[in-house]
């Protein structure tokens, strides 16, 4: 990377077709966007220069694909059933989930609890910081400029539009995830789930409830 760009220009011969593996379009070809093309080119160069290997790229994609709301749901369901675990989780989220084999990839985890009087909502106004190792990739709306701006200045209106209507006595706590912390909302445990085990409870803990845009699912009556 320190070489003179001029002397190496012959090595940058990447004028070939890039094969896509994520083509979900109906037709047999489609055009790559500018950023997609740049990211492919960068990946190829990094592999060519032995900065990363193709296997490492694949392994990381595999790891990220294995992350998803089921990871967060298990953490929350465990906290609902185990007061000691919940206390640890609220005190030191990063270390507590590490004990379950969940890494925070360099960030710190803060778990915030919804109660009868407090409702927490997570947003990242500056970009789209999100606890990806716990919830997987964020939904498109979380990354939208509309959500990122409105969630901080009119959170109750945004919550209403997602179907979450809160009484005035409930404090809405918005968490702007703008630096080194990542936030996971612990929704209220639904009434009528007494005696349920972790697996059963985890089914009720949705991605949206861990962002705080909704509550946990109610058990079937």
């Amino acid at each position: 990377m320190t070489s003179n760009p001029g002397e190496n220009s012959d090595n940058y011969d990447h004028d070939h077709e890039v094969l896509k593996y994520n083509d979900d379009s109906a037709h047999d070809y489609d055009e790559m966007g500018r950023y997609e093309l740049m990211s492919e080119a960068l990946k190829e160069l990094l592999i060519e220069r032995n900065v990363v290997s193709a296997s490492e790229v694949r392994e990381y994609l595999d790891f990220m694909d294995s992350r998803g709301e089921h990871v967060g749901a298990e953490i929350i369901a465990k906290a609902w059933t185990d007061p000691d675990f919940k206390r640890q989780l609220m005190t030191d989220g990063t270390a507590t989930v590490a004990g379950m084999g969940v890494t925070m990839a360099g960030a710190e985890l803060i778990v915030v609890e919804n109660t009868d009087d407090i409702h927490n909502l997570v947003v990242c106004t500056l970009c789209s910081c999100y606890p990806r190792t716990i919830l997987g990739l964020p939904p498109d709306w979380y990354k939208s400029k509309v959500y990122r701006s409105r969630a901080v200045h009119e959170p109750r209106a945004v919550l209403r539009e997602f179907g979450t209507i809160l009484a005035d006595h409930v404090s809405v706590r918005v968490h702007d995830s703008n630096a080194d912390m990542r936030y996971l909302v612990m929704p209220k445990r639904p009434v009528g789930t007494e005696g349920w085990n972790i697996l059963q409870l985890a089914e009720l803990v949705t991605r949206d409830s861990m962002i705080g845009i909704a509550g946990a699912q109610q058990p079937p009556v």
Partner: peptide, 22 residues
């Protein structure tokens, strides 16, 4: 307090926003 941040905040006095600040 949200009412400290936004002049026209539409919500109760006890709504808050937490931000990480260097």
């Amino acid at each position: 307090k949200q009412t400290e941040i936004w002049d026209a905040y539409d919500g109760p006095e006890h709504d808050t926003l937490d931000l990480e600040v260097q």
